[in-house]
Simulated scan of single mutants.
Amino acid sequence: MIELREVGRTFAGPPEVTALRDATFGVDAGEIVAIVGPSGSGKSTLLNVLGLLDTPTTGTYHLAGVDTGSLKERQRTALRASTLGFVFQAAHVIAHLDCLGNVTVPLEHLGIPRRERAAMAEKALLAVGLGHRLRARPNTLSGGERQRVAIARAIVHEPKVLLCDEPTGNLDSENTASVLELLESLVSGDRAVVIVTHESDVADRAHRTVKVVDGVAAALAA
């Protein structure tokens, strides 16, 4: 699903800053891969590259078999929308929309016909265990439930890769375990999950770990 070869990202100065260098690793379908490292190590830069929100200065990045370096901006946007799902530390649920409404939002931007959106959103909410809260408003949900809505929104278009940035950072231990179990259940033969985390117990649940230190990303042994 993901293949990086000697990927680097340098930001123009002065002074010039190399935030990422020589990142070489892959992520296969059916895998959960954790990205770990101290603050300022380059994790965010790496995640932005993986999410097609930034372009490498050096190296190559293939996503779902596509050489992203050869794409024009419109093509990058289309690939990001169709192939990637994003989950962040803050759930970013929309307060005035119920669960179903929150999950249908990305489908509107993808041009999915209105008659299909509700069915797709309901399917996604069922997948995250919220089939009984379709019409619930965010202010009636627990922190863990709000994060489940965010995950449902991220998977509603059935992306091949789910990118998670500290998805359990705002949760207590019980909800953290619940969300991790959910993410594990979403990994399949045609989907991969990448989790950026500073929590060792989260990283321990991954199949493999990529450690980023001073901009250098190295895959650790399984």
Rank of each mutant, 00 (worst) to 15 (best):
D214H: 12
P14T: 09
A121V: 07
M120P: 07
P38Q: 01
A29I: 06
V17T: 09
I32L: 13
I151Y: 04
Q75H: 10
R74G: 13
R191L: 05
E174K: 14
L134P: 07
G13Q: 05
S70R: 15
S178E: 14
D190F: 14
T18D: 03
K160A: 15
G51H: 08
L107Y: 06
H207D: 15
V93H: 06
L100N: 01
R146F: 08
D98F: 04
D172V: 01
K211T: 04
D54F: 01
A150T: 13
E116D: 08
P113G: 08
A81R: 15
I2Y: 02
T209A: 03
E16K: 14
A136L: 06
L134K: 12
S39M: 06
H198D: 00
A177M: 05
A221Q: 15
G189R: 13
I94G: 05
R5Q: 14
V103Q: 04
G42E: 00
R148T: 06
I195L: 11
A154V: 12
R9V: 07
G65P: 14
D54P: 04
L171C: 04
F86N: 00
D67S: 08
L52T: 09
V128E: 05
H109T: 13
L220R: 12
A119C: 01
G42H: 03
H96T: 15
N170Y: 12
R133N: 01
G215M: 11
S82W: 05
E73G: 03
A124R: 02
T209Y: 12
A121P: 05
T18Y: 06
F88N: 08
G169M: 04
Q147F: 04
K72C: 03
H92A: 03
S188F: 13
G40A: 04
E73P: 11
R115M: 08
D201M: 12
A177G: 02
P38G: 00
P113Y: 13
A217C: 14
T10F: 09
G51A: 06
L100V: 05
F88E: 07
T197G: 11
A34D: 12
G30Q: 06
V128S: 03
M1P: 11
G65H: 07
R137P: 15
I155K: 08
E174D: 13
R115F: 07
T209P: 03
G101L: 14
